[in-house]
Design a protein around this nucleic acid. Sequence first.
RNA 1: GGUCCCAUCGUCUAGCGGUUAGGACACCGGCCUCUCACGCCGGUAACCGGGGUUCGAGUCCCCGUGGGAUCACCA
Length: 471
Amino acid sequence: MEKVRTRFAPSPTGYLHVGGARTALFNWLWARHTGGVFILRIEDTDVARSTQESTDAIFEAMEWLGIDWDEGPFYQSRRGNLYREAMDRLLAAGKAYACDCSAEALEKMRERGMALDGRPRYDGTCREKGLEWTEGTVLRFKVPRIGVTVLPDQVKGDIAFQNADLDDFIIARSDRSPTYNFTVVVDDIDMGVNTIIRGDDHVMNTPKQMLLYQALESPLPAFGHVPMVLGPDRTRLSKRHGATSVTAFRDMGYLPEAMINYLARLGWSHGDQEFFTRDELIEKFTVERIGKSAGIFDMEKLTSLNADHIMATPVEDLGARVEPFLTGLGFDASDTDYRLRVVETLVPRSKTLVDMAAQAAFYYEEDVVFEEQAAKKFLRPVALEPARLLLSKLEALQDWKERALEGVFQAVMDETGLKLGKIAQPVRVALTGRSASPGIFEIIDILGREKTVLRLKKALAFIEARAAKAD
RNA sequence: GGUCCCAUCGUCUAGCGGUUAGGACACCGGCCUCUCACGCCGGUAACCGGGGUUCGAGUCCCCGUGGGAUCACCA
């Protein structure tokens, strides 16, 4: 069996969006699954719209996702002579011809065709003129007038196109630069690409490209057209649907593992399995299992999957990954051991790294700020007695460990006759400012004696002041 | 409008002639419990419509409807 050679060929006219990322992912997975080769090619023939920033953004996004390439990046803008050579071959073989129709004439043809049978098209005016290909004329490909081109699509099945419905499309502009349908084919032939997985917005281009393969006397690659990714309103995903740039998800605290898991599962399935590690994806991915219908991008499911991946990631790893988010919040999170202990308590409660960093705030803040609702509900005079008792016992505690701390609470419970909940909630608010947090013993353990005592005293003062005001 | 594609819970999907139509997200109950999560248990919720084929259709065929893609000297 021939070695699989796939490619991802984005045009650098913007950031890498989720749809493109999924296309890249599928090609990459297929190459990795089969032990093949994955190629990156930048389609920058449209000089006006291509930018270096976009190219860099694409690299950055792919690197973050962990989608690496074996060959490339190749730039179409630097492969002019290759295209020129192919043009000459086609021209010499009579498979292409020059056309000097004006833009106005072309517009007329389209209008006429539209009025005639709803089919706007080029009417072949210059097809047999034998015009010389000079500056100012374009080069058109001579599409067979009869016959059917059947696309054996790996995901959609056979799709038939009447050659008569295809235009004699332009392969070289009047400035002699090659157009998309032509460059892709020439490049894919040159690079030995034998498997093309791409968005299904390309199906209509495919018969034209297949004809080009024939004209260039090259074997056809296998085609697989993947359905689109839609926004919640069922229209093509775009900026107005919110975040669509891959790197935006990185900044929102999503893990690349979760991202590729979600993207893979959107349009592809493996029985009932939802959670996949990168290796499992490579092991189980096949083009055959790609679905045929378009899918809606669901942020909620991505988020849920992200939480699952957070729980599946080693804490050391997570610790390193949240640090920038902690720093971004203005905290000094350079103490690795402390950070790891903090992260450990937050793992099952965090949907994203941003979420995790936000929840970690009380561990780093100098001073806790009591949330109004929480303070109102729990920092009340009834909490004074048990809190004072707890404080004195904590100050005297020798062994500052979770087990011992639990013993301290038990003692307070015994002496006051109160249940743990009655004591823990006020203390929680005192230490974290909020009514929800990780377990009370682990928090105290991690915070340490100094901070715990300080915060407890502050809360005590807060309650006393409040009681005084009430009198 | 022409051409092409698609159609199972709100969403992602399993299903490849015979199933009480399964799972996941979300949602709603309950359990666990120091709070919040996690976890566990349970629930609401789907085969677009109409014709065929067949002993039997979510599964096969046709038509309709709906949605999408594409019709450039853009990629």
